[in-house]
């Protein structure tokens, strides 16, 4: 079968998106890593040891602990969206694996519910952003576009199974091909093409947008620092230079 221009375009798009996503993230993580914290600023009460602090960050990442005590409704919406997204992502792993891992196979039916939870969470987040005056005040156009992009990904995803009946075997062959640096044909179905274009856009935007909260939370000094300033000095290299002067 001949390879259409569309398939080639999407192949190049995904290589580029992956490169930008990974390269951009590596660059930002490197930047965060290299930037020192000259002072201990853990928000207390804080764990006094490094493993304790790591656990604190893990609780924030997995349970959204601070948000839970901050705004219960927002926590529900955010949890629905993020947990739903995580399930949907796991479900999509099957497009890259042959044979499919047992856990991924088992997660398949839940992936659908994940997608629904994600869409529901996103729609609530969007409504909240428009309705609450405080949140509307701090909303930039990009904040709305980001939500719309994610909603677009969700809707086009469901659209494929509902209206188009996309040939998933072919889609899988396309992505398995990309993994082996071969370009194989992609079904030309508008919901699929929309879905994939939106996902690629999200990957490209990731390192340049507020989506950096994903790596960023691991570098938030108020959360990741152990509270031990009386026990240990905490001198940043640039601050140590001040000591040489005087």
């Amino acid at each position: 079968m001949a390879i259409s221009g569309v398939s080639t375009f999407y192949a190049v798009l995904f290589y580029a998106a992956t490169a930008i996503f990974l390269g951009g993230l590596a660059w930002k993580i490197g930047q965060y890593w290299r930037t020192p914290s000259p002072l201990k600023i853990a928000v207390t009460p804080a764990p006094v040891s490094a493993p304790g602090a790591a656990l604190r960050v893990a609780r924030e990442v997995v349970l959204f602990e601070s948000l839970f005590f901050s705004s219960r409704w927002l926590w529900i919406m955010a949890a629905l969206f993020h947990a739903g997204l995580a399930l949907a992502l796991v479900r999509h792993l099957r497009y890259f694996q042959d044979p499919v891992w047992e856990p991924v196979a088992l997660a398949q039916p839940f992936g659908i519910y994940g997608g629904l939870a994600m869409l529901g969470g996103l729609l609530m987040l969007l409504a909240r952003r428009l309705v609450i005056d405080r949140v509307r005040f701090v909303t930039a156009p990009s904040d709305l576009l980001m939500l719309l992009l994610l909603i677009g990904i969700g809707i086009s995803g469901f659209g494929m199974s509902a209206m188009a009946r996309v040939d998933v075997v072919m889609v899988k062959a396309f992505f398995r091909g990309l993994l082996m640096f071969q370009i194989r044909p992609l079904p030309i179905d508008p919901p699929l093409l929309l879905h994939l274009a939106a996902v690629a856009a999200l990957m490209i935007l990731f390192p340049f947008s507020k989506l950096l909260h994903l790596p960023g939370i691991f570098f938030s000094p108020t959360r990741h620092q152990a509270d031990n300033p009386r026990e240990a000095r905490h001198l940043a290299p640039w601050a140590a230079k001040l000591e040489e002067k005087s």
Partner: peptide, 18 residues
Amino acid sequence: GKYRSLRVYLDICVKCGA
């Protein structure tokens, strides 16, 4: 370049309003 807090916090706010 001197403060990780500043560097990270200016990037990662999601404008959630919490």
